[in-house]
Design a protein around this nucleic acid. Structure first.
Lengths: 296, 296
DNA sequence: GCTATTAATAACTATTTGTTATCAATGGAA
DNA sequence: TTCCATTGATAACAAATAGTTATTAATAGC
């Protein structure tokens, strides 16, 4: 069975006339007769009833026609889509991100991407930074939005988003927007910091905020998740340092106090593998690099 | 693009090794190289990344593999199903029937047929006798259950069901099971008869019941549908002669009185075109002829 | 630096497909 | 009826396609 035979068959089902079908196929009638014959022989099924003066489909031929026409059309679609995939116009992109992205820049970016690239399917997963780093290197993720990536020869990156840090204190605390002037005021408190298991960098960044203020923080708990930290703070189990944007998406009984005059900011970086062969990725990156200028 | 090339492609996606794939395909490595190359050239898309030491799929190749594997499998299924259709083991049968069948033999028959021929799809339509007769001749119906078919050279038939006729009178009538002895008692009444538009035969059959009793009926209404006749009787617009089985399926305020000592019975005949090429039909008929002995 | 392994290429052969010429069957016209 | 035009099948041959063998260039591992 060959595709050519199926195409010949389909043409013959249209005309029900060997000579005319052959003409439309730019071959000669005996060639068509031979191919149809060999198709029937291979299937072991008579597809046409030829009564010297009239050609018509057998019931099996009718069924075969109907199904083969569908298959043939599908194959043509796949052919075209494959070409789109090769140019990157169609395809799949797997994206990982840390939790805070989903209440800052990410929704808008996804909206923009899906309307700019309607044939590219985005797969989104919230993950911790360390896991994303591994996944990008293994090729399991095409793109990751994470914090403070280390250097790696084959990884490229660009800063996507930044915002100030806030000190998060329980609602019951005596500190508030007006009387909080410096981290020195909380030198004696215990802190909830990001765990080192999710990479040293983010942990060290927060540590350095305290160090810059002249003290080493006492650590009561460690957690990767901002929302966990918020609940711990609300329950007076320590203070936390979080990106300011968390204020808008929590109902925890806490207060966000912007930390004044510090060099550290919460930053989200997009990272990807320089050697990633996914052709959709470069299109996406071009779009992202154009659009996303770091904002407050 | 040829099926052979797609099969070669799929094999290569399995092994990702030209020599091994060629071996499994019982061809030699350069032949495989050439076919893959020509497939890629025709698509205009590189499907494999060959780095002298390692062969791997490009993203477009991955997409193509996934889709082609499905298409190939579907084609194989269709191939096998086509063979079943040719032997009649799979297929479609279009059946027409008059209304009374659906509360007598038909449900049981359908149950039996679908369990005996799970791959044959039955399409059922309630129709009037005249329309079915036309449809069977045109090949639009494979099988029809109807009343009193005329003779036709290319139509075969068999008696499927018979039952006695009942005289249907309004509930308010003075006639009942004990005092109704003969059609002569209702010689002066007006009758609801089947319309001639649905064939003379059934009309004439009922007429003959009256004639045998020595009178020509006065016709108040004509209708093809038993349920219509029942409503007319309930509203005292005439008497009707109907197959006894209607008694079990109506809530109309009427009485069914079996007509004693008459030669006429209500008969349902299965008819089909002797030249119908549908291979499923002969299987079905064999089953039907074995099972269905006319019952009272 | 050598060897073994891998895919590509070229030249040739075998197989498949298409073409031309012809036939047998059949429906319609004379 | 007889004849003719039309149709699909068949046979012999030509063209195109696919497969084989021999060889090469590249590279990973010893």
């Amino acid at each position: 069975m060959e595709l050519k035979q199926l195409d010949y068959f389909l043409m013959l089902t249209q005309t029900l006339h060997f000579r005319k079908a052959a003409e439309k196929l730019y071959i000669v009638q005996p060639a068509l007769s031979k191919q149809i014959k060999s198709l029937e022989a291979e299937l072991g099924v008579r597809l046409f009833e030829r009564s010297q003066r009239r050609v018509q489909l057998t019931p099996a031929g009718q069924y075969f026609k109907q199904e083969v026409a569908q298959i043939r059309q599908r194959l043509e679609e796949v052919r075209n889509l494959t070409q789109l995939v090769a140019t990157g116009e169609a395809g799949e992109i797997r994206i990982g991100y840390v939790g805070s992205c989903i209440h800052t820049f990410l929704p808008e970016m996804i909206t923009g991407l899906t309307s700019a690239f309607p044939h590219i399917q985005l797969y989104l997963s919230e993950m911790i930074t360390a896991a994303m780093w591994e996944s990008v290197l293994k090729g399991e993720l095409d793109l990751a939005f994470l914090r403070n990536p280390p250097f790696h020869e084959s990884i490229e990156s660009t800063l996507i988003w930044q915002e100030p840090f806030a000190l998060v204190v329980p609602e019951t605390s005596s500190l508030n927007e007006t009387n909080f002037r410096s981290m020195r005021q909380v030198a004696g408190e215990s802190f909830i910091l990001p765990t080192r298991a999710d990479g040293d960098a983010y942990h060290d960044l927060q540590w350095s905020i305290c160090e810059d203020a002249g003290f080493s923080p006492q650590v009561s708990h460690e957690t990767v998740h901002g929302h966990t930290a918020l609940q711990l703070v609300a329950n007076q189990l320590g203070l936390a340092i979080l990106p300011m944007s968390f204020r808008e998406v929590t109902t925890a009984r806490v207060r966000f106090l912007e930390i004044p005059r510090i060099r550290q900011r919460s930053e989200i970086t997009a990272v990807w593998d320089r050697h990633n062969p996914n052709p959709s990725l470069s299109r996406l990156l071009k779009f992202i690099l154009e659009k996303s200028l770091p904002t407050p």
